[in-house]
Design a binder for these strands. Sequence first.
DNA 1: AAAACGGGGGC
DNA 2: GCCCCAGTTTT
Length: 214
Amino acid sequence: MDGPHVVEVLEALKNLYGTRPWNWHTQQKPFYVLIATILSQRTRDSQTDEAAQRLFSRYSSPQALASAPIEEIEKLIIPVNFYRTKAKRIKEVSSLIVRDFGGEVPRSFDLLTRLPGVGRKTANCVLLYGFHETALPVDTHVHRIANRLGWIETNTAEDTERLLKSIVPKEWIPLVNDLFVKHGQTLCSPVRPKCSDCPIAYLCKYGKQAFKGK
DNA sequence: AAAACGGGGGC
DNA sequence: GCCCCAGTTTT
């Protein structure tokens, strides 16, 4: 069997979804991207964007958030999931950025993942959207789609990240994450994916199986 | 490896 | 009422 049809898949998704950034917070400064990405964890993007804009219209800098009362942050970011934990972490992250990095978000995977509430995926989002580096965030959508396509057998997001980095042509890297998430939010949904409407079903292990016997 | 975090909004 | 959500940390 031949390898993953990476470029065919990406071309098809680009034709389907275009190249417009998928939401508001991906076009902001690194600090905004960082905070909005923390807000986005396990939370729908519409809720994330509204909460992030409420928060930033009241507190617009690391310094302001570092000295903001936790309860105020909480109130502003409801209804995002885990809002109490996130409010605490947002304050901590802001304080650390002020104390340790002169108020600037560090441009380094290792330093970013040392911040509370910042894991692999969030750090890669900051590098990709905030600093325009060729980072490759892997969330549940990206991971699920890589699995369904039959590109990976292993089951960790880190393996998916490594695999995608190795097979995606460089010029596509800024788009991969965006296109996969859009696809995951629409046709390639977690349950009942709409394979009959999917332009890449014929390249997809899961999609082919969905049509078997029809 | 599994559980905890943890609550509003869509159906 | 039930189920889900651009994950991360803790047990």
